[in-house]
């Protein structure tokens, strides 16, 4: 009987990302950093914060996908990452549900 392993070892990828990709990602991150600074000096009204946050998220996603190789990793890795952000989201959402409604009038 052939012994099949159940420990999901086949999930480990030895993918080699090329140097060109790494430099391209670095260039993209530099452009996005410049964009962050430029955007901060513009007046988009109440949109400044969401824009800054969006750019930072894009930068983080790029780092995660390419520098941290999530794009070539098992789906489990992305699931772990998304899962932890979901739980952090619960912390934000439910705690803000208190602060934002604290001074609402009583019905």
């Amino acid at each position: 009987m052939s012994k099949k392993k159940t420990y999901e070892a086949e999930d480990f990828s030895h993918h080699v990302t090329s140097m060109g990709t790494y430099f391209a990602i670095f260039a993209a991150l530099m452009v996005l950093t410049a964009l962050t600074v430029w955007v901060a000096f513009q007046d988009f009204g109440s949109l400044n914060v969401p824009i800054a946050f969006a750019i930072a998220t894009v930068k983080a996603t790029v780092v995660v996908l390419f520098f941290m190789h999530v794009i070539h990793s098992p789906k489990m890795t992305a699931a772990i990452l998304v899962g932890s952000i979901v739980f952090l989201g619960i912390l934000f959402l439910l705690t803000f549900s208190d602060y934002l409604s604290r001074f609402w009038p009583m019905a």
């Binding site: 950093t33 962050t36 901060a40 930072a56 930068k59 780092v63 995660v64 520098f67």
Partner: peptide, 25 residues
């Protein structure tokens, strides 16, 4: 070890606009 290092980098990516770029104009 790289995963850890990149994570610390990502934290900074968020900290930079939060702490330095609040309406600098």
């Amino acid at each position: 070890s790289g995963l850890y290092w990149h994570f610390v980098d990502i934290v900074w990516i968020f900290l930079f606009p939060m702490l330095y770029l609040i309406d600098p104009a």
